[in-house]
Design a protein around this nucleic acid. Structure first.
Lengths: 238, 238
DNA sequence: ACCTGAACACCGTTCAAGT
DNA sequence: ACCTGAACACCGTTCAAGT
């Protein structure tokens, strides 16, 4: 029996936390959050389910690590510019503005849209590494954009919470069965509201039902984001 | 055997959807979202687990009904005023303003803070009755507050998504073990960030850690809410 | 028609037994 | 030390059998 035969075809590298996290992300991306099982993961890694626990404490930690991995690519503009190296240089034009923070938040939104399970995971635990990373990037962007220090925490938190709300919605959207068309699904929902809309009841939801069927999640998210940024911009500077 | 003996002590009323939902809410409020099990629920109702399925399709539907029940108490100011009865009356002062919408959203926040499982449930499925109800109430409030019609959907959606984000956070906070003090937990988290904060890394999160330990969730939520409302107020009227 | 509760098809996690 | 995979302690849900 050669050494290569002791290592079955499914796994080339030795079992380790990064390898496990990578395999988990693959399953999550391809088959959705419900598909991630320690048994299936073990099969993909050509090992037993118990082996995973030698490298990862439990499923929660695995999901946190997977989320952190995806979000690691998100960098604040300020961070990327290497602030701190030229602290004493003459004050130049701000390295980031509200528009950069806007782009940053939309990047995270796009990442969630591409990996809906990430939406579930981010919304689930506010103190995990991935959320802190996003919070940090947004916060640094706001500093450079000139948001007054006394409002930094409030504005950053508002942006993160809004983002978490949208994250949950994206994850929920992804849970709609694929064979049901999204439009059909939303039309059915709208029909359900309509049926219950008595005289004067649910007039607003009813009026919005038409818009719902063909709206664009990202545009709508951006519109709300702009409300928050407009509110932040209206804060009097120190 | 008398008739009263055929109906065991745990259940006075006949089994029905409302009775089941009421029992579910009791368990959720007292022991948290993880405690709600069809087996435990059946025990509380002095019946078999299978009996519940004669009145409720599945656990999802049960949770949606429980959420709808709690949220039913939330009424938009416009709705409560019986708009529609005096449609042709001379236009009086607006029945609601931004301040009323603010109060409405904070009422929902307070409801979630009092019933953390509601936060999980609302954030989970955007199309459930409870969320539509809140959306409707907020929308009606915005109409009366004079938000331009073309922005109604965006503003209402932004408020709901922000609320859903906060809902998820509240639910997550409630999942912190009770014997661990909240302050100790947050201090530990902050310490964890500190440990990882290299030169220039996580400077923002680090600076915020102190504020985190003793901040007030509700005040912070209100601050973000005010940003959105300020942004909405800045939209030029038609 | 409604209820019962054992049975089914899963989970995450543990752990004795192997290498 | 690391891995294996059966076993444990749960779930939600189903369904034959009762009333």
């Amino acid at each position: 029996m050669s050494a290569s035969q002791r290592r079955p075809s499914g796994r080339r590298e030795a079992l380790s936390a990064p390898v496990i996290v990578r395999a988990a992300i693959e399953i999550l991306d391809e088959h959705g959050e419900d598909a991630l099982t320690f048994r299936l993961l073990a099969t993909h890694l050509s090992t037993g389910a118990g082996a995973i626990y030698h490298h990862v404490a439990n499923k929660d930690e695995l999901l946190e690590a997977a989320a952190a991995e995806l979000v690691a690519g998100i960098e604040s503009i300020a961070g990327a510019a290497g602030a701190g190296e030229a602290e004493d240089a003459a004050p130049s034009a701000p390295a980031a503005s509200d528009a950069d923070v806007r782009t940053l938040v939309l990047d995270v939104f796009d990442l969630i849209e591409a990996h809906p399970w990430l939406g579930s995971q981010l919304a689930r635990a506010p103190w995990q590494t991935a959320v802190i990373h996003v919070f940090e990037a947004i916060g640094q962007g706001l500093v450079v954009a000139g948001v007054p220090e006394r409002s930094l925490f409030d504005v950053a938190s508002a942006l993160v919470q809004y983002l978490m709300g949208a994250a949950g919605q994206q994850a929920a959207s992804a849970r709609i069965p694929r064979d049901v068309g999204r439009t059909e699904f939303l039309t059915a929902i709208a029909g359900n509201w309509t049926a219950r809309a008595g005289r004067g009841e649910r007039r607003f939801a009813l009026a919005m039902a038409a818009q719902l069927a063909d709206h664009d999640d990202r545009l709508q998210f951006a519109a709300g984001l702009d409300l928050i940024l407009a509110g932040a911009a209206a804060i009097p500077r120190a």
